[in-house]
């Protein structure tokens, strides 16, 4: 602007002469293709044979080799014959359900084992009906902002989930951080009020805080809020699974992985 204004022959732009309401602002520079695109897309396309088929064949061979090597080296576990009269301590579900079993230690069984996973699956299935904007398709994490939100939500979820498990364990497992047992002792609260309602509220609070922080820091789109929530789910699933597989020993007490008896595999 300064250069333009000093050039002779051109009237200097007078401040305020442009209608402020109509002035266009430069919002963002986006990398893109030219509007006019050639009708023949041959340059962008490749023949499936051989370009894709070779990728599939190589990955199948590599995977088979790894599976074969693993199966030669490591035997699947087979313990003693099933004995209904001898309950192992601890008894554990298959590893991919140990996240639910971990939740079970802290709240009502129906809430932990059925309602939470059902709500999570339905919410995941519903994502495309809430996020319909085509922006960011094909780009991992949508944008650099999306990737920063993933990083933030990952750290947040690890800290919060690990923190909540340790605090609940310290105060008294399944007492809802002592609030539930206080309500029972002093207000005559029922199991339903503490194990279901209070536990639900305790689970929802960190989710709302996550959304609140992401909104405050990143000014996210709807897609980016969903990225934060999905990342929270994904990380929580694996953190809980790791607690269940590697840190729960006798009586489901917290212990180190090397102190565990072999009870899952």
């Amino acid at each position: 602007m300064a250069e333009l204004a000093e050039r002779p022959g051109l009237p200097a732009p007078t401040p305020g002469s442009i209608d402020e309401a109509k002035r266009q602002k430069l919002l963002e520079l986006v990398r893109g293709r030219a509007l006019a695109r050639p009708t023949d897309l041959a340059e962008d396309e490749v023949m499936v044979w051989p370009s894709l088929v070779v990728v599939e064949a190589v990955s199948a061979v590599v995977f088979t080799a790894i599976l074969f090597a693993l199966s030669v080296l490591v035997n699947g576990p087979l313990l003693d014959r099933a004995n209904p009269n001898q309950t192992p301590n601890p008894s554990k579900a298959p590893w991919y359900f140990l996240n639910l079993q971990e939740l079970l230690l802290h709240m009502d069984a129906g809430l932990a084992g059925v309602i939470v996973p059902t709500v999570a699956l339905v919410a995941i299935a519903a994502i495309p009906y809430f996020d319909r904007s085509p922006l960011g398709v094909g780009i991992l994490g949508t944008s650099s902002k999306g990737r920063r939100i993933i990083a933030f939500a990952t750290v947040y979820s690890i800290v919060v989930v690990v923190g909540m498990i340790l605090v609940d364990e310290k105060i008294g497992r399944g007492t809802q951080f002592g609030i539930g047992s206080y309500m029972m002792d002093h207000w005559g609260a029922t199991e339903f009020m503490t194990g279901v309602i209070l536990s639900t509220i305790i689970m929802l609070i960190p989710i709302f805080i996550l959304v609140g922080i992401v909104k405050a820091i990143f000014r996210p789109t709807r897609r980016e809020i969903i990225i934060a929530l999905f990342t929270g789910f994904f990380v929580t699933y694996w953190v809980l699974t790791m607690f269940g597989t590697s840190f729960r020993g006798h009586g489901q007490d917290l212990t180190w992985p090397w102190n565990l008896p072999l009870t899952h595999g």
């Binding site: 099933a82 359900f97 059925v114």
Partner: peptide, 29 residues
């Protein structure tokens, strides 16, 4: 699929994992 196959070896691991798993399902309201 994975859960239903887990019981088949009929060892202590299978038996008690499915006991825990079906108890979780049995806790449904």
């Amino acid at each position: 699929l994975s859960f239903s196959g887990y019981l088949l070896p009929w060892d202590q691991l299978a038996y008690w994992a499915i006991t825990v798993g079906t108890n979780i399902g049995g806790a449904a309201p």
